[in-house]
């Protein structure tokens, strides 16, 4: 009896401590990064061109590459996820699709970057481009999107599908009107997750989108090189000849964190409100 109570107390303490450790770590990181960066953050720094020491072009490229890569990866990733969750019968082919997805998910991003370097930069001869960077980045996001979509769709109760089919709807009507709307929060969470990763990704983009920015700002041409914020951070820390390297790095890091945070809220909040309307609050 006593030893049960003791182990219960020990377990409670350890689990609480682990939880607090994680929260503490996060708070420390945020406080440190934002504390260092806030001194540097100014309108000129955030939106100004490179010639004035700003990171405006990098910030623009970050979003541009993110949007382009989502344009590639969301239709294919969500499509494959829907296929696996709704259409695929257990078979060799299905297992192969799932296995390929998992293998793709374990490929280190540096390898994807070098792959992109060979394909887009060398074989296709495009050089460092925003387009190539976005395509290589899509490869990183694809498997995660497939997995997240499949899992989000599987949380929709089978009874909803049967209810819809029993009213004489087709399978696609059931998916579009019942299954997708009720799993939208899971899908959005997945897209936010990959977006966060894409915003922070550097290894892939160093080899595909390059470490320089266009002379024009903003430049929508997808066939020019486009350094993102994360790549810029890596670059100024590695390059000895950058003026104010410390300040630029601190500012870029803080901005990166804020961008991810902003992105999560901008997508996550509307999705949550939509979901609450569906579920009803009595």
């Amino acid at each position: 009896m006593n030893s049960n109570r003791l182990s219960n107390t020990v377990a409670t303490v350890i689990l609480w401590a682990s939880g607090f450790f994680i929260v503490g770590l996060l708070v420390f990181f945020l406080a440190y990064i934002l504390g260092q960066g806030f001194k540097v953050l100014s309108l000129d720094f955030v939106f100004g061109p490179a010639s004035q020491g700003g990171v405006g072009p990098q910030l623009f490229n970050t979003f541009y590459i993110l949007v382009l890569s989502l344009l590639y990866s969301v239709p294919i990733g969500v499509g494959a996820g829907i296929y696996l969750a709704e259409y695929a019968k257990p078979s060799r082919l299905t297992n192969l699709v799932r296995l390929s997805t998992e293998c793709l998910a374990t490929v280190p991003s540096i390898v994807l970057g070098l792959f992109g370097l060979i394909i887009f930069v060398n074989v296709l001869g495009l050089g460092f481009t925003i387009l190539g960077g976005a395509a290589a980045l899509a490869l990183l996001n694809l498997p995660v999107l497939v997995r997240v979509t499949e899992e989000a769709l599987r949380t929709v109760p089978h009874a909803h599908r049967e209810g819809s089919l029993a009213l004489g709807s087709t399978q696609w009507q059931t998916i579009r009107r019942v299954v997708l709307p009720s799993s939208i929060l899971g899908l959005i969470t997945g897209i936010t997750l990959v977006s966060g990763r894409a915003i922070g990704e550097a290894a892939i983009l160093v080899f595909t989108a390059g470490t320089s920015v266009s002379r024009h700002y903003p430049d929508f041409n997808p066939l020019v090189a486009g350094e993102t914020l994360a790549v810029h951070l890596w670059y100024v820390r590695g390059e000895p000849l950058v003026a104010n390297a410390d300040a630029v790095a601190a500012g870029s890091a803080a901005l990166l964190v804020l961008v991810v945070l902003f992105f999560n809220l901008a997508i996550g909040l509307p999705a949550r409100i939509y979901q609450r309307r569906l579920r009803g609050s009595n």
Partner: peptide, 16 residues
Amino acid sequence: RKRVGMVFQRPNPFPM
């Protein structure tokens, strides 16, 4: 299924 509809054991209204 449009002609022959079904009501299930557990109520399954859609989340709408």
